[in-house]
Write a protein that binds this DNA or RNA. Structure first.
Lengths: 342, 342
DNA sequence: TACGCTAACGCAATCGATTGCAAAATCAAG
DNA sequence: CTTGATTTTGCAATCGATTGCGTTAGCGTA
């Protein structure tokens, strides 16, 4: 028994001259074992460098002490973590989760075929799931939520939604952004984003409502499909510019898209905010640092992450936590001609 | 047996009217089972929505299909994911790891007491480990590497190092940065960073060598301790300014420190790059967007992450992969008075 | 029909912990 | 010294898969 790989609990039992049951209970601080003996066994285990094998523990306990964080798919399976918004969200979630003594498992979905979510759930690798962004998987999420409770989604609240979600008020946020542009006297406001995604379609709804309230007729030529990656967004903006369609403002549905648009405008010699005002969405860290600094609809990710994890742990405990909506805030900076941020 | 929780392999065996052994082999595409029968069993399992329980599988196979990514500790156990450099690195690593069909487990070290690394290793939660940044744990890493092979560290190559590491040439990078400042005619160059950290002390080495080569005497008053967080770095820069020590350039050992220094200089009414040139380290995304855009020593994180994961998988396969050093590149932008980036 | 050989398949042990239940030890009181 | 109550401890089953080894089925040949 010299070096038969790492120690097992049985080895510790032998060292302490007790049974495995006793060791197990002692390490779990079970009061069934008298306190002094518990301490003694814990000391022996620590000195021997013994660590509980988590695979075995998980199997027996049907618990993994792990939360899975799943990133979206559907639209863009390529680069996973490139998007700054997702990264920041992931960081916040990781903080909240680890603080509660759980591990974080990053799940990337490579196989989007039917039942992908069920495959993650049934793998039993985690005790609960956070899905960041509902992408185009509303139906799949709804179905999974029927039978799997410890599941919280970051995203907009959609009609007919069964699952628990946390997200900003997309309609309200968009409304606020577009109202601001209108207040600056802008009348031909372009919309950049992918209407197929539920959250984006909500932002579109806000855009439409703002225009309608201002009595401005909506021009379909101003609605441009744009993905989340910088490159494709840049292309989209360039096409808008070259199309010759007149416009004096852009409401971009993400900061990355807004930043790409600003670059495209600069390349075309169009001044921001002189000729065109630009507003983004998310208020990621770079937004304040860009040239000009970007006006953006701020999502409070720290609060969002905390809310998500709070709800998740409630659900893991069997309670039935309801969805939550956070109120977004418009952060005004120079990119739309408003005042600079303090 | 109507709804006794999720299906087990035994249930599938019953459905397919074969033994568990056969189901197990069929799902593993074991050629011992004739191909048509394999397909048949796979179909039955899929239709029943069966998914292998990973805890059980891991226990038996002694494999988890998971790579652990550990973040540093020592200096700053508080906020985990705040630093943009670490975030970006994590994203890249996650991409590389998931692409190879493995999961990513984020390990946060809450208990820094003796044997923390061993505790992670022995938990058997992962098949391999990436440690991002050696912090002040050189000795612990060396010790763990003696017996645990699938371990790769991001960081500088130190003398007497046993573990496998991947990192940029810190001395060379710093040397290049300081040489550039000297080339601009700067003579009193301040150094901002924590000498206690091995990587930083290597950068200091490069700083010293550059000065010596230029025949400039080194002034201890110009070496300022500065942590990685924005706030403490800002404080450090402010103290330098208020100390009255004359200086015409700053070599900051991270971009965050450089950015903080620029803000402190601006607050003191000192023009960058007019009066003081500033160079950073890392070339994080914000560097190009700051005002003025920051000159920085670029670390190619994409390549770094790929190298790390390549080496790790080699080591997991039993090969003995050596450490690697990446060549950094100086990206010149306006913050030091050089030409703007293309 | 009998025999040998290979291809399929299943039995049962195993991975390393946890825990219900019952046995053993301890103690107090009669 | 018994008896009963109570505290400690250990046996053995269990979690759900994988796999070495032995058995059975299937086929060709003599």
């Amino acid at each position: 028994m010299a070096d038969d790989g790492p120690l097992k609990m049985a080895d510790v039992a032998r060292l302490a001259k007790v049974s495995m049951s006793t060791v197990s209970r002692a390490l779990a601080d079970n009061p069934l074992i008298p306190e002094d003996r518990r301490r003694e066994i814990q000391r022996i285990a620590a000195e021997a460098g013994y660590v509980i094998n988590q695979s075995a523990r998980s199997l027996r306990m049907r618990k993994t002490q792990t939360i899975g964080v799943v990133f979206p798919l559907g639209h863009d399976v390529g680069q996973l973590i490139s998007d700054p918004f997702f990264i920041e969200m992931f960081g916040r979630l990781a903080d909240e989760i680890t603080t509660r003594g759980y591990q974080v498992l990053l799940c990337r979905v490579t196989d989007t075929s039917d039942g992908w979510l069920n495959r993650i759930i049934q793998s039993h690798r985690q005790d609960g799931l956070v899905i960041v962004g509902q992408s185009d998987q509303h139906a799949a999420l709804n179905q999974a939520a029927e039978s799997y409770h410890p599941l919280v989604v970051w995203g907009g609240h959609l009609s007919g939604q069964v699952y628990c979600s946390v997200g900003t008020d997309n309609i309200g946020g968009a409304r606020r952004a577009v109202d601001h542009l209108l207040g600056l006297g802008r009348k031909r406001i372009a919309f950049l984003g992918m209407l197929e995604l539920p959250e984006i379609s909500l932002r579109y709804e806000g855009y439409v409502r703002a225009l309608r309230a201002a009595g401005i007729e909506q021009d379909p030529a101003l609605v441009i499909p744009a993905h989340f990656s910088f490159e494709t967004a840049y292309e989209a903006a360039r096409e808008l510019i070259e199309s010759g369609t007149a416009f004096d403002a852009i409401f971009a549905t993400s900061d990355i898209i807004a930043l790409a648009a600003i670059q495209a405008l600069a390349a075309a010699g169009i001044d921001v905010p002189g000729q065109v005002s630009v507003v983004g969405f998310d208020d990621i860290a770079i937004a304040a640092q860009s040239t000009p600094p970007l006006t953006s609809v701020q999502q409070d990710l720290a609060k969002g992450a905390k809310t998500i994890v709070d709800l998740l742990f409630k659900r893991m405990a069997g309670e039935d936590a309801p969805s939550a909506t956070l109120l977004p805030k418009l952060v005004v900076r120079k990119s739309c001609g408003g005042a600079s941020a303090a």
